[in-house]
């Protein structure tokens, strides 16, 4: 086990399992992100070795895509849509509400590790704006009051 609970053999298993797929590098990174919730920097040389690529090539892909995290996320991840339709329906106020309540900005995690706040540019839920996801579950027509309820509910579910 590495620090932060990741496991070298788990990464090697994923890389070896997918190495022969066309376009394997993105598949491998996607799988690591999905299973670990982030992509530890130490996985870069491991993947490079399995795919016979340079570390630079692996690093380049890992840092190109917004989905790939380079630090572990908080226990709960909130992704607020900040695109046009949601802006037109109050996403700016929701953004301020979240920043105030959590005391962090977008792309940050609270010091106690409870919440990570991310921006997303369109969830395809524009007809139910404003929209956000909490731990992957999608919510539409969200108001600050409903957001508080949803946040309380995920915290309760955990305890």
């Amino acid at each position: 086990m590495g620090s932060n609970g990741w496991n070298q053999s788990a990464i090697l298993d994923i890389a070896r399992q997918l190495r022969d797929e066309p376009g394997a590098l993105l598949l491998i990174l996607r799988r690591i992100q999905d299973e670990l919730g982030w992509i530890p920097e130490q996985s870069v040389p491991l993947i490079a070795d399995v795919l016979n690529l340079s570390r630079a090539e692996v690093h380049g892909v890992a840092t190109f895509y917004h989905d790939f995290r380079h630090h572990p996320p908080g226990r709960h991840v909130i992704r607020l849509c900040r695109a046009e339709s949601c802006q037109a329906m109050g996403a700016v106020a929701l953004a301020r509400h979240l920043e105030d309540r959590l005391g962090i900005g977008f792309g940050q995690t609270t010091a106690d590790g409870r919440f990570t706040l991310d921006a997303v540019y369109c969830l395809g839920n524009c007809a139910c704006s404003p929209a956000l996801t909490i731990d992957g579950d999608i919510h539409g027509r969200v108001t600050p009051g409903r957001l508080d309820d949803l946040m309380a509910a995920v915290e309760e579910r955990r305890s």
Partner: peptide
């Protein structure tokens, strides 16, 4: 089905091909 990784530019057709090939979009 191949799932992308949150990049808007990968909707551009040639960037999408690069991404499918496992590269930066």
């Amino acid at each position: 089905v191949r799932v992308g990784a949150g990049s808007y530019i990968c909707g551009e057709e040639t960037a999408m091909l690069e991404s499918l090939e496992g590269k930066r979009g």
